[in-house]
Design a protein around this nucleic acid. Structure first.
Length: 277
DNA sequence: CTGCATGTTAGGTT
DNA sequence: CAACCTAACATGCA
């Protein structure tokens, strides 16, 4: 659900409105959405201002005054919404944040309650310690470095792309879409991909992520941005959730199989398991 | 009713 | 150790 492009869209929406806002009171309706104690969290957050926003993988980072960061991971169904003061409280609202001198509230909604929010001290350059194990950002890494990293592993390529410690921000949708555009079977061994295939994959990934950001993300189920708007990239998907439908490249039937425990959509003709060399 | 879906982690096996 | 698998989490939906 929220993967890199969706999280980036949310971060941009928050950044446009909330720089300089000072946290006042917070209402934590579901304690389990927090890492750490509710009191400690609320006390430490109150009085801090938002200095800037960033995104790291699928994590939303509010950089705060006093060398701290508020980090939000939406997992599958989490949403951050900026709402007018009297908006009806949603059934799935887990936390409400109020700001000094502002009428709008920030709400964290999450039907499945897997999303997490936490506060931590940042390093001298604003680094967030708990996010240090994440792999590189796909839009920042060079294709040369990407290829080197992929070839250094001996894993099936799709689960490798989903591994956040290997590469940060790619989820099920964009992994499938990228592999299809690069014409690579999701079970291919990463160490056995050719230079040409690695280059195709890297370029496909970057191109698709950028296009999805431009479209405001993909809304297949519940995703909406901080203003409650749906994305548009679902209209450009070529394989995700299209099992049985014709491949837009070759006309053959797309299939769904499980790879690394995740449903995976691909074209058996365009993405052969054993490509001719 | 049954089973599936998503992201991540924990724990166990090969 | 690397790679891989499964269960767990909570809920809605087909």
């Amino acid at each position: 659900m929220p993967e890199l492009p969706e999280v980036e869209t949310i971060v941009r929406g928050l950044r446009r409105k909330m720089i300089g806002w000072k946290f006042s009171r917070s209402e934590i309706l579901t304690a389990k959405c927090l890492r750490g104690s509710r009191n400690e969290f609320c006390e430490s957050l109150s009085g801090r201002s938002v200095v800037e926003f960033s995104r790291r993988g699928k994590n939303i980072v509010f950089h705060l005054s006093g060398g701290a960061a508020l980090v939000v991971h939406l997992r599958m169904t989490g949403q951050l919404h900026l709402v007018p003061p009297r908006a009806a409280p949603g059934e799935h609202t887990q936390a409400i944040f109020l700001f000094a001198g502002k009428r709008e509230q920030l709400r964290f909604n999450d039907t499945r309650k897997f999303g997490r929010i936490w506060l931590e001290e940042t390093g001298a350059a604003g680094e967030v310690p708990s996010l240090s194990r994440l792999g590189p950002e796909p839009l920042e890494i060079s294709c040369r470095e990407f290829a080197r990293r992929v070839q250094a592993k001996r894993r099936r390529i799709k689960p490798l792309l989903l591994d956040q410690d290997f590469l940060a921000g790619v989820g099920n949708i964009y992994a499938d879409e990228s592999l299809h555009r690069a014409r690579i079977h999701p079970r291919r061994n990463s160490a056995e991909l050719s230079r040409a295939e690695l280059l195709r994959l890297c370029r496909a990934l970057k191109r698709i992520l950028k296009a999805a950001i431009r479209a405001g993300g993909t809304s297949v189920r519940s995703y909406v941005d901080s203003a409650g708007l749906r994305g548009g990239y679902q209209n450009f998907l070529r394989v995700y959730q299209r099992a049985g439908e014709p491949c837009r490249n070759c006309g053959g039937a797309l299939v769904r199989e499980t790879v690394g425990g995740r449903s995976t959509f691909f074209c058996p003709r365009c993405q052969p398991e054993s490509p001719k060399t």
